[in-house]
Structures are given as structure tokens and as C-alpha cells.
Design a binder for these strands. Sequence first.
DNA 1: GAACACAAAATTGTATACAATACAAGTTAT
DNA 2: ATAACTTGTATTGTATACAATTTTGTGTTC
Lengths: 232, 232
Amino acid sequence: MNRTIDTTLPQPATSDSIAQALSLAIHKHRVAPGTKLGEDELAEIYGVSRTVVRGALQTLSHIKLVDIRRNKGASVASPSIIEAREVFETRELLEPRTARSAATRATATDIASLERHIVDEHAALEAADPGRALYLSGLFHTEIARIAQQATIAGFIETLIARSSLIIALYWRRESALCEKHAHHALVQALADNDEDQAEALMRSHLVDLHSALDLRDRNERTLSLKDALSQ
Amino acid sequence: MNRTIDTTLPQPATSDSIAQALSLAIHKHRVAPGTKLGEDELAEIYGVSRTVVRGALQTLSHIKLVDIRRNKGASVASPSIIEAREVFETRELLEPRTARSAATRATATDIASLERHIVDEHAALEAADPGRALYLSGLFHTEIARIAQQATIAGFIETLIARSSLIIALYWRRESALCEKHAHHALVQALADNDEDQAEALMRSHLVDLHSALDLRDRNERTLSLKDALSQ
DNA sequence: GAACACAAAATTGTATACAATACAAGTTAT
DNA sequence: ATAACTTGTATTGTATACAATTTTGTGTTC
């Protein structure tokens, strides 16, 4: 359960290890949405045959981190605005309830683990490594789902967070603060206190904050605002 | 969107078509949980190489319809009691809300489609084809998720229903009636009336009914009750 | 110079061959 | 007789070869 962030891979690399390495790279915004993922290229990088790479790409396509189109190959997914809205609406449906369960079940060990996450996250921000900070911020949420002991929901949340990373890469408003510094901390406090209502409420408002830091206006609204911007 | 139930496959079969055919067979309880799915065997059946079959099996493993263990191969999944509980708890979390959305968005065409589903389902029951009835019953739920226009949630629900089919195969109480004949009909009525509250409530109670028709006691309770049964 | 046609290159999809692992049966030793 | 070992078979994992499709580049025509 002690997932490392290191990108080194076992020799020889397996489909799963490649999928994880790619997933991490996407999480950390080291590869942008839309980037082509050629099979030969990846096979060379990881020192395996295309067979293994294809397995990894198929895995990632199932969690919608990559798009595979027949005879066109794989590329990093690029969620539409509609998909982005759906992802956050779904998170707002699943995660508050999950935080509630986590509040009833959190042990001292769990709390310590979450606090360590927060420390790491702050350290990454200090070190001017926003990619890593974002990745850790996602891990924080999956960790809560794990604590809630709902493996099924945790699996769903994991894919939603993966997609959220793409959504943030595409639609994050520059002007909005990186925030949430306190949000996660307050949430841990509620979990430590086994305060279910508080945990659920905090998670809900945290997600709403995140959601509202995205620019999910559709193209029409966007061009209108562009027109506004240029008319000055 | 007019998914056929026919099991004939395109020539040549593709990974997706094989995955769908296998999924259908599992849904209809034509293959039991735990059944070994040998690659060579399937390759011969569908007239393709193992490469294609492996793709299909990997797809099915992602929605947890099959278990793949390294160097051990694939077999039809066999959800534990804990997983079964989780699946139904998750459905109870997602589907009522989805039914609510569906109630606001359902068009006359949608209602007609759902009513056709119900007719087909009854026909299957009349024809003593419980497998097909069960499959159609699952389709009814995915159809509602589709009507709700929440593709993300619909995808989750689809995998939950697939797993429910396995759970029903494993844990359905013989003595419990096949029921739900009226449940689906009442739900369609609520959707047709755009009665959100009613749709949500009906879906919730329908799922609770389903859940309670399963025998999800753990082994200890089970053996105890066996003792009771024999002590008479 | 732009648009189309066609050929060449690159990339993906599938099949097959080979390597590695697991399983089962039979053998030997204690 | 049982346990451990060995060997043979079956099955899965991976690499490579070939087929099919898309993309790219070039030349021709208007």
C-alpha cells in the first residue's frame, strides 16, 4: 500500500508498470492532453515489445486517460467541457458520502498517513513542483476512499481523479489560487474527530471550490468573453 | 443505440465483439462464475488468434466480469459477499439520483423505449427464459442511466449491473420471488410524469428489494443457520 | 500557386512462433 | 504408504513477422 512516486520501472517492464508510469506522467502534467502515444516509441522507451505497450494503453483507455481510436492509435485523452462537468458532478455525488464513511472508520494510522500526504504536498509546492503537488493532491482523495473501505467506490473515484487531472490541465483558471491548502487540513481534522457530518460537508464544499476554479463555459460564452476582452 | 441480443458475431470477430458476446453469455447465466476461459479455446470458437481474445478478456477484467491472474489465465469472476454488498450499496447511491435526472429529461421516445423493454422482459419470462429476462432487466437500468444523460455515471452503473448479474447468480435466494414485475412499470410511469421525487424513491426501494432478495450473510451466520435447520 | 492523384513511408491490427510458467502424473526414496 | 522430486504437457506471456490502414510527400494538372 506504500505507493512510490519514483518513475523507475522493474526490469523487464510489464504492462501494469508501464500503465502506472504513463499515468503518473499524465497526473504530473508532464505530457499534455492530446499528446500522441506511438506504440513503437513507447516500446523503445520501456525496452519491451509493442505487445506489452498495447496492454498498457488499453488499460489506460479503460479509465479514460487515453483515447484509442481504431487504426489511429492512442493519445492522451482530452476531456470535453461536458465530460468535465460530468466528472465533477459525479465526484460531488460520490466523495462526500465516502468522506462520511471514512470519518467513521479512520484509525490513527490512517490520519497519520493523510497528514504525511499534506506535508509532502506542501513540500512539493515549496519546491516549485506543481505537477507533483497536483499528483499528491489527487492521492489524498483516493486515500480517503481507501480509508472508507469501499473498494468499489474507491475504484470509481480513482478514475475520476485521474480524469480530473486532465480536466485541470485543460480548464484551470490561471487567476484562481492554488488554494485548498487549508481544505485538506480541515478535512483531516474532521476525520480525526470522527465527525461524519463535518467531513461530508467539508468534502462537498472543497469539491465545489475546485469545480468553480475551472472555466467550463462552452465555446459560445467563451468567444463572447473574448470579444469583450478585445473590445477594450 | 439499438443493441441487439443476437449472439452472432461479425466476421471476422473483433476484441469488442467478443467481449460483448462473452458479457452477454455471462449476463444470461449461460456461463457460471468461476468458469475457466482458456485463450486457445475462445480463439478457436470465435475464429481469431489469441491476440484478439486477450484483448477481449482484458476489457472484461476491467469491468470485473472476469478475473485475470498472471500466468493463471482468465475465469468468470466470482464476487465475494463483501464485494456483493459494496456493489449494491454503490448502486443505491448512484441509481436513485440518476433516476431523478432521468425523470427531468425523459422524452416520449425514451418512455416508449423503456416500455418496450418491459414488454420484452415479460415475454422472456413467459417463454421460460429467465436468463434473457435477467439480461433485459439489467438493460432497463442502464437505459435509465443513458436517459439521464450522465455518460460517466452511466458507465459506472453499467459495470455495477454487470457485476450484479454475477452476484445474483451466486447469492440469489431461491425462495424469493422473481418480483419487480411492477417495480419497473411504476418507475416508467414516474419518469413519464416527470415526477423526480417519485422516480428517485421508487428506484431506491426497488434496489433495496433486490438487495434484500440476496443471501449475503457471511459464512459464520450461514453455518449457524444450517445448524438451526438441522436441529429441528 | 492551389488542388488533386498517386506512390511511399509510417503506424496500427492480427497471426504466429517461441519462451516461461504452472499443473499433473509418475517415479523414487524414506 | 506417503512425501518429495522429476518430467511431460498444457497454458500463458512476449517478441516478431506480416497484413491492413492511415498518413505523408511528391509530382502533375489546371
